[in-house]
């Protein structure tokens, strides 16, 4: 399947935040969105998820405009992975994952045993089954992020929209989450994620897009897009991209 963002524009009040951004994503792709704070990444995500109305352009799934889709249908196609958060009530992890099934239930419905089995399989896939009975509010940040990804998986959508899945995690958990992201792409899911670390794009992205002040600066394969010049343009600091070994690149910021 193919998710296309076609010349999208959106914003709050009278202020445009994102203008004329076009992206596309196929099943099996990991598209990594880079950009400084306030460059419009989250706003663009909200527009894609139908939480914010588009000012211009279209969002297409396999060529069909999603503007008229009800929230339920949108949620069956696009699953959202928010940053690990703390809900006001101490739900059990298994119930948090089970919430993903809402898009597949009627308005008065409750999840069935089949839904519970799907949730359990999703937890299994992300390696968090042992947390099923734990309270979501009491597990670690890294575990919460994995649980939220499991929830998105249980939603059985074709695309996962992930808002900074590696932020606020320690180094080990960042790597664990990135490995899971690669695995999910292997299952033919399309993943769109933001990150503050260009290195993470090298590690797991098949394509990279760079946003600056609401406009698309560059898009393409990681080694084409993530260059010293592009990163300096996006973040305003000097960066060297070093090839450590064949096909393995890292970003080293200049400190002077």
């Amino acid at each position: 399947m193919r998710l296309e963002i076609e010349r999208a524009g959106c914003g709050y009040g009278g202020k445009p935040v994102v203008e004329d951004v076009s992206l596309s994503l196929d099943s099996g792709d990991v598209l990594c969105l880079l950009g400084a704070n306030g460059s419009g990444k989250t706003t663009l995500f909200k527009a894609i998820l139908g939480l914010l109305r588009l000012r211009g352009g279209r969002i297409l799934v396999d060529g069909a405009d999603t503007a008229s889709w009800p929230q339920r249908r949108l949620a069956r196609t696009l699953a959202y992975v928010p940053q690990a958060h703390t809900p006001p009530f101490p739900f059990a992890v298994r119930d948090v994952v089970l919430m993903a099934r809402t898009a597949h239930l009627g308005i008065f419905g409750s999840p069935s045993h089949r839904d519970a089995a799907i949730a359990e399989d999703a937890m299994e896939a992300l390696g968090v089954s042992h947390l099923a009975r734990a309270r979501y509010t009491e597990i670690s940040g890294g575990e919460r992020q994995l649980v939220l990804i499991a929830r998105a998986l249980a939603q059985q959508s074709e695309f996962l929209i992930m808002d900074e899945p590696t932020s606020n995690l320690d180094f080990g958990n960042q790597v664990r989450v990135l490995r899971r992201i690669k695995e999910l792409a292997g299952r033919k899911l399309g993943l769109l994620m933001t990150t503050h670390f260009p290195d993470h794009a090298f590690l797991c992205a098949s394509r990279v897009a760079v946003l600056k002040a609401g406009k698309l600066l560059a898009m393409g394969r990681p080694e084409e897009v993530i260059t010293g010049g592009q990163l300096e343009g996006a973040y305003g600091v000097s960066v060297r991209v070093v090839e450590v070994e064949a096909g393995l690149r890292v970003c080293v910021p200049g400190m002077s």
Binding site: K46, L49, G50, L51, P70, Q71, R72, L74, A75, R76, L78, A79, Y80, P82, P87, P88, F89, M99, A100, T102, A103, H104, I107, Q155
Partner: peptide, 15 residues
């Protein structure tokens, strides 16, 4: 689902 907040609930498919 609603107790996870307006935006998240909508992204989960709740009207």
């Amino acid at each position: 689902v609603l107790s996870f907040g307006e935006e998240e609930a909508r992204a989960l498919g709740a009207a």
